[in-house]
Amino acid sequence: MTRNVWQGRHGDSGDVTDSIEARTRAFIRETFPVASGDVGSDESLLGSGIIDSIGVLTLVTWLEQEFAITVADEDVVPENLDTLARIIAFVERKSAAGS
């Protein structure tokens, strides 16, 4: 089900960040089983082998649906998507900009 990260939330931005991180962590853990241990916030997802190249497509599709954002082709770069911390910042930017 598609949800907007801002919908139904009344806390501060820290709560929102926590929510994005928790949901993204859960998705990565469920979808990429090698990440059964804790994934560091600054750990490279592609470089460490946690996700593979096709996994990036899976991740992007999930981000679009889960957070109701649009990811452009030029957004698919490591600066936006290669670590949990970057993903959170990217989703926050996209959501704040109304995607």
């Binding site: 090698v34 059964s36 082998g49």
Partner: peptide, 14 residues
């Protein structure tokens, strides 16, 4: 790591 990921995806618990 890549081989471990593939094994984990096949159902071998990491």
């Amino acid at each position: 790591t890549v081989i471990t990921r593939l094994l984990a995806s096949s159902g071998i618990a990491a």
